[in-house]
Design a protein around this nucleic acid. Structure first.
Length: 892
RNA sequence: GGGCGCAUAGCUCAGGGGUAGAGCACUCGCCUUACAAGCGAGGGGUCACUGGUUCGAACCCAGUUGCGCCCACCA
């Protein structure tokens, strides 16, 4: 087949013209769809479900690039692969979005009522939700769209109900009155992980309680809570307050009398050693209150407004605070001046409002037994965390987990399947069961924490609780790819629920995934966290539009070491775009020169050293890439492929190929090697940069798609590519060639010779070296002509045992001398260092023989270098006299 | 308050007991017929500091300093 019969490729890669079309082709041909009944090993990944409200950001792009690369490689390896997409209903986030929309219409959800509001949210989801799914297509995600799931789907809701019922029956879910994190803006309880602690500059106020002998000073940053104080606590051993313990003192402002209790929780070293106790509004105080049977006095409502009777009633908590302080000051109750105080305060992770600890009746998961199992699965190796260093964080979380508050005072989410009877009966209703009928029965009004359904994701998406073919085939999933930032709250919970729900499968098969592969955060080009407030965020879609999906993916993959953060900037993606273009042009070169992919690998006996060298390197690179894939070393595998493709294939092999393509008897063989080489190279790159590789590969081979081409590593004949193709002799020979060419190029550059200028030269002694066979190539790479009849050398240099004598051209004696003097100094330094080393008896006695040999070799090389360079310097002095005016500089 | 990690070129980072690396940036020269989104040749580092182990330390150990991150119910 000849070049003209093939697709003409433009000289620059235009991602926009390729990507959309290819993606739709892949989908249309069903290449992403997993066939659960197909033979062969299975490989599955469930996508960390993005929020319906979300759009694609760099974090997703990183996540998805890694998952897609893993999936694509396995698919090429012949696994039955499933990458399952879907979305999370994102309770609070979504409800907030729709409530804001309603607010614009001057309405609240209460105006609509529950049923209409939920309907409205579904409507919102249908119209504006899930933008991210379309954006995933732009990235090239090879997800199985036929299996797309949503946490509020009928099936997944049934899974939620089922597991709730089981947990309830196993006494692992309970309802209790506890201090929980309350968001006064969202009007709902929050779990610990939905609270972000940030330092806030507060004011520490010291207040004198009681009077006369009873006086005791307490400090607080939340003065308004004193309205709900029901005690003062001191440490039992604190002599300063021994006389007060058990007595009652006067609480300022209200005039109530409250007891002084002795409790070991109090730190006598901190502040005055006395603490005000507000059981209804502080978790510690709640515990103290429980221990001493203190009443809990709620003084704030769900909006954070004071309800305690008196002058402060109706004030917001932040208005009440200074008001209370002012009133105390008036009464002379403020001791000393208030002072600024930096302390960590909890904020609602959804809206940023300061969280209010609040006593209320909520549902909890008893996590202790579940968390223990989740920890054990990692401890005994059923689940591997990668990189292993991060397992410590996992254990820290799992081994010290508080009970999980799962009820939310929201309308959007899975409603708690519990009914309360007129006589206080509590009935948990499982799926398919009829709720109790009759007067007075009512369902719990709350919904479940969004993370409750997310925790079921690895099996609820596969059909659990039914025994489906998908569940049997694809559970446990092969790997979970996510950022270390959500290792705890999501990963740990999937582990707990997976092990619990799937326990019948046996300990090894109940785990939700076999490996957790963690990556870091995407940062900006200066390594700073991306944030909207800093204005340094980058939109992946913008990059995809301007540089292509492949360039975007390659940038992220290339920066991603396991567990490490990725710094990206426009320079990076430009480089990746350039790389794609380089591949484009290299393949284009191969095509223009009639490269062809033969059914069988090239006949080794017919190959030149250059061919054997590049195929040997290809084999080495193939093995490395395979290994890096197994270890999630995306950065390294990209690096290896980048350098192989660019430095070795393009800069050397293609240049060498130009010579052999020009020789009629060698051209066919070279075309064959080029075909083989690019076929393999493109396949190796496909998982990371799917679009450009598919486009080029189909042009090269005439096949439909690279997606189903076998992964290299073993060729069609069952021959292992590494091993068979490795050729150390060819590698050494070509290394020698490259050193020679580089050395002469350096000389030419120093001489100011233009790269294209042809110079007559003699390569004296080349025939006696292994490079003899390459003389033609070497001359071509270096633009050296055969010497004419009247050849007269004006300069010479030695390298690789060859004396290169250059004809009239070389001239810049000063530059050459400077260069040689520098080389001489370096060689002398090296010689000195190695000599000193070899003079040490301790070194000779204790260092391994290989190191000693190596050092001797270095010394010999350095000495030879000194001699050679000295010789050149001397020769320079002689030959420079006569020939300094004919040179390559006349043009510049 | 507890735990973990990091300090290597101008920037972002890899490496890891035996010759200091990459990308980008920088300098010089080139439109050499796949590619100027390119080609060739260069410059640039006390591997944070102080000690220790070792024939040998950027690497291992201890301490110091600086910087991150995670967890956390001390008012």
């Amino acid at each position: 087949m000849t070049a003209d019969s093939r697709v003409e490729l433009p000289p620059q890669y235009q991602p926009a013209e390729v990507e959309g079309r290819r993606y739709e082709e892949w989908v249309a041909r069903g290449l992403f769809v997993a066939d659960a009944s197909a033979p062969g090993p299975a490989y599955s990944i469930v996508i960390p479900p993005p929020n319906v409200t979300g759009s694609l950001h760099m974090g997703h792009a990183l996540d998805h690039t890694q998952m897609d690369a893993l999936i694509r490689r396995r698919r090429m390896q012949g696994y039955v692969t499933l990458w399952l997409p879907g979305m999370d209903h994102a309770g609070i986030a979504t409800q907030n979005v729709v409530e804001r929309e309603l607010a614009k219409e001057g309405q609240s959800r209460h105006d609509l009522g529950r049923e209409a509001f939920v309907k409205r949210v579904w409507q919102w989801k249908a119209e504006s939700g899930g933008k991210i799914l379309g954006q995933m297509r732009r990235l090239g995600d090879s997800v199985d769209w036929s299996r797309e799931r949503f946490t509020m789907d009928e099936g997944l809701s049934r899974a939620v109900q089922t597991i709730f019922k089981r947990l309830f029956d196993d006494d692992l879910i309970y309802r209790a009155e506890r201090i929980i994190n309350w968001c006064p803006r969202c009007h709902t309880a929050l779990s610990d992980i939905e609270v972000d602690h940030t330092d806030v500059e507060g004011e520490l106020v010291s207040i004198r309680y009681g009077g006369g002998d009873d006086a005791v000073v307490v400090a607080t940053t939340r003065a308004e809570t004193m309205l709900g104080d029901t005690a003062v606590a001191v440490h039992p051993d604190d002599q300063r307050y021994a006389h007060l313990a058990g007595r009652e003192i006067e609480l300022p402002l209200s005039g109530r009398r409250i007891p002084v209790v002795a409790d070991p929780h109090v730190d006598p070293e901190f502040g005055t050693g006395a603490v005000k106790v507000t059981p209804a509004h502080d978790p510690n105080d709640f515990e103290i209150g429980r221990r001493h049977g203190l009443p809990s006095l709620t003084i704030l409502d769900e909006r954070g407004i004071v309800t305690a009777p008196g002058p402060f009633a109706g004030l917001d908590r932040f208005e009440a605070r200074p008001a209370v302080v002012a009133a105390l000051r008036e009464q002379g109750r403020i001791v000393a001046e208030t002072r600024p105080y930096l302390h960590a305060v909890g904020h609602c992770s959804r809206c940023g409002t300061i969280v209010e600890p609040r006593l209320s009746l909520q549902w909890f998961v008893k996590v202790e037994p579940l968390a223990k199992a989740a920890g054990d699965a990692v401890r005994d190796g059923r689940v591997r965390i990668h990189p292993p260093e991060l397992a410590a964080r996992y254990f820290a979380w799992v081994d010290d987990m508080h009970d999980w508050c799962i009820s939310r005072q929201l309308w959007w989410g899975h409603r708690i399947p519990v009914w309360y009877g007129p006589g206080g009966e509590v009935v948990c209703v499982g799926p398919g069961e009829e709720p109790p009928a009759g007067a007075g029965w009512q369902q719990d009004g709350d919904v479940l924490d969004t993370w409750f359904s997310s925790a079921l994701w690895p099996f609820s998406t596969l059909g659990w609780p039914d025994d489906t073919a998908d569940l049997r085939r694809f559970y446990p999933t092969s790997v979970l790819v996510t950022g270390y930032d959500i290792l705890f709250f999501w990963v740990a919970r999937m582990m707990m629920f997976g092990l619990y729900a799937m326990r019948d499968a046996g300990p090894a098969e109940a785990v939700p995934f076999r490996v957790v592969a963690l990556h870091g955060l995407v940062r900006d080009q200066f390594g700073r966290k991306m944030s909207k407030s800093r204005g340094n965020t980058v939109d992946p879609l913008d990059w995809i539009s301007r540089f292509g999906a492949d360039a975007t993916r390659f940038t992220l993959a290339r920066g991603a070491s396991p567990g490490g953060d990725v710094a990206v900037g426009e320079e990076w993606v430009t480089g990746a775009r350039n790389f794609c273009n380089k591949l484009w042009n290299a393949t284009r070169f191969a095509l223009l020169n009639g490269a062809r992919v033969a059914a069988a690998p090239p006949d080794r006996d017919a190959l030149t050293a250059a061919d054997r060298w590049i195929l040997s390197r290809l084999a080495a690179v193939t093995a490395e890439v395979d290994d890096y894939f197994e270890r999630f070393e995306f950065s390294k595998l990209c690096e290896v492929l980048y350098h192989f493709a660019w430095d070795e294939v393009c800069d050397w092999y293609l240049e060498l190929a130009k010579t052999s393509l020009a020789a009629p008897q060698a051209a066919d063989r070279t075309r064959e090697v080029l075909g083989y080489l690019f076929d393999r190279l493109l396949r190796l790159l496909h998982p990371v940069i799917p679009f450009v590789t598919d486009d080029l590969w189909t042009a090269l081979t005439g096949e439909d798609t690279i997606m189903t081409a076998p992964w290299p590593g073993q060729d069609e004949a069952g021959r292992s590519t590494p091993g068979d193709w490795r050729d150390p002799a060819a590698e050494a020979e070509l290394s020698s060639l490259m050193r020679l060419v580089t050395e002469v190029r350096r000389f030419r550059s120093d001489q100011g010779l233009r790269p294209g200028q042809r110079v007559p030269a003699v390569l004296a002694g080349i025939a006696a070296t292994p490079l003899g066979a390459h003389e033609h190539s070497i001359r071509s790479l270096l633009r050296l002509d055969e010497p004419g009849a009247e050849f007269a050398a004006t300069a010479s240099l030695q390298a690789e045992g060859i004396t290169v004598e250059l004809g009239p051209a070389a001239v810049d004696v000063t530059a050459e001398r400077r260069r040689l003097e520098k080389d001489l100094a370096a060689a002398r330094k090296e010689a000195e260092q190695t000599e000193r080393k070899l003079a040490s008896e301790a070194f000779l006695a204790k260092a391994p023989a290989s190191v000693v040999t190596d050092t001797r070799g270095r010394l010999a090389a350095a000495r030879a270098g000194i001699e050679r360079v000295s010789g050149r310097l001397a020769a320079l002095g002689v030959s420079s006299a006569g020939s300094s005016s004919r040179d390559g500089k006349e043009s510049g």
